[in-house]
């Protein structure tokens, strides 16, 4: 029995979500979502990083350990990275993190997610966050 397989018991549960946003695309995208007044759930805590390549897998594991229920990393679309290839490293690292660590640890892979959001996609940012928050709400808290 893995964690969080029961549904229906999570009513009224407000998850804590850590969102790593890259400075050049996703953070600006989040900004645009705010300026354009797109609504999204207030469960995320945004951490600005200069590039999604800055996000070490250990940051994600530490976030989960210290009480986050979900972690989302957002960066520029592939090919648009301000530092040319930073997000390609992120992508590769994420695949390894999922296939080797998250899977074997018995953590639901839906709790850790990688998305590309550009600076002009304020609407998309709001959508991604809403979707992710709903997913985590269904899964329930990570620690019980």
């Amino acid at each position: 029995m893995t964690e969080a397989k029961k549904e229906g018991k999570n009513e009224g549960f407000e998850p804590n979500i850590v969102a790593f946003c890259c400075n050049w695309c996703s953070y600006a995208g989040a900004d645009l979502a705010g300026v354009s007044r797109f609504q999204y759930p207030p469960n995320i805590r945004v951490i600005r990083v200069m590039c999604s390549g800055r996000v070490d897998p250990s940051f994600i594991m530490k976030a989960l350990k210290n009480g986050a229920d979900g972690v989302i990393v957002t960066g520029c679309h592939i090919g648009d990275c301000h530092y040319i290839s930073g997000n390609e490293y992120t992508k590769e690292r994420f695949e390894r993190l999922h296939s080797i660590i998250i899977k074997q640890l018995g953590v639901n892979p839906k709790r850790v997610r990688l998305e590309w959001v550009s600076a002009s996609e304020g609407k998309r940012f709001a959508e991604v966050i809403t979707e992710f928050t709903n997913d985590i709400k269904k899964l329930g808290p990570f620690k019980r």
Partner: peptide, 21 residues
């Protein structure tokens, strides 16, 4: 950056059961 020791700590959570490949 403490990734492996963090893993051990996460494994110590009583509701989590590793599913090793």
């Amino acid at each position: 950056k403490g990734i492996y020791t963090t893993l051990s700590e996460i494994m110590s959570e009583s509701n989590l059961q590793p599913e090793r490949t």
